[in-house]
Amino acid sequence: MGCGMAVDANRVIAGGVLIFVEPEEFRKFLELKKRPLLIVGETGGFRKTKLTMTTYDGALIITRGEVEVPKNAILVRTENLSLGK
């Protein structure tokens, strides 16, 4: 069965849908949009983790760390990022 793009996800949480991927896979999603929306921030309490997120067809695609921001992207930076509740 063929498909346009295959991505390996670290974790998928159904019901949201949150998809955690490696930075290389994340960049593939950015290439699919003319003006990708990127959200960059830190989550966690004592041990902060930097995350970068974008949306694709109703899913929230997430990677750890920061990635190179395309020139055509819309960038939202936040100091406090929450993934739930």
Rank of each mutant, 00 (worst) to 15 (best):
F29C: 03
E24A: 13
R11F: 13
V12T: 14
V17F: 04
E68W: 01
R27D: 10
L18M: 12
A6G: 11
R47S: 12
E42C: 01
L81E: 05
G65H: 03
T55F: 15
R27C: 08
F29P: 05
V69A: 00
E66D: 12
E42K: 08
G41A: 04
P70A: 11
I39M: 13
G41E: 02
I62Q: 00
G65M: 04
P36F: 00
V21P: 07
I13K: 09
P23W: 08
R27W: 06
I39H: 09
V69L: 01
G65S: 04
R35Q: 07
R11G: 02
K71S: 13
P70R: 10
L37H: 10
L30H: 04
N10V: 15
I39A: 13
G41Q: 02
V76R: 12
L37G: 07
T52Q: 04
T55K: 13
L60G: 07
K34H: 08
K33F: 00
L51V: 07
G58K: 00
G41K: 03
P70K: 10
L32P: 00
T78R: 12
I13W: 10
K28H: 01
N10L: 15
K34N: 10
E25R: 06
D8T: 15
F46E: 14
D57G: 00
G16Y: 14
T63R: 08
K34R: 11
G15V: 03
V12E: 08
F20R: 06
K34G: 09
T52K: 04
G84A: 05
N80Y: 12
L81A: 07
A6L: 09
L51K: 04
N72G: 07
G41I: 06
S82A: 13
S82H: 14
A73P: 05
G4V: 10
P70D: 07
N72C: 08
R47K: 14
V69M: 01
Y56W: 12
V40D: 06
K48H: 02
F26M: 04
L51Y: 08
L60Q: 11
E79W: 03
E42G: 00
G45S: 11
N80Q: 10
E31V: 00
I62T: 05
L51M: 06
I74V: 14
R47I: 12
A14W: 09
G2M: 09
I13N: 08
T78D: 07
R35D: 03
R27V: 14
G84T: 03
T54E: 01
G2C: 02
K85D: 14
T78K: 11
G41R: 03
G45I: 05
A73T: 07
G2H: 12
E68C: 01
L18Q: 09
T78V: 15
G16A: 11
V69E: 05
E42P: 00
A6I: 11
F46R: 15
T49Q: 13
I13R: 10
G2V: 09
M1N: 11
I61Q: 01
M5P: 08
K48Y: 00
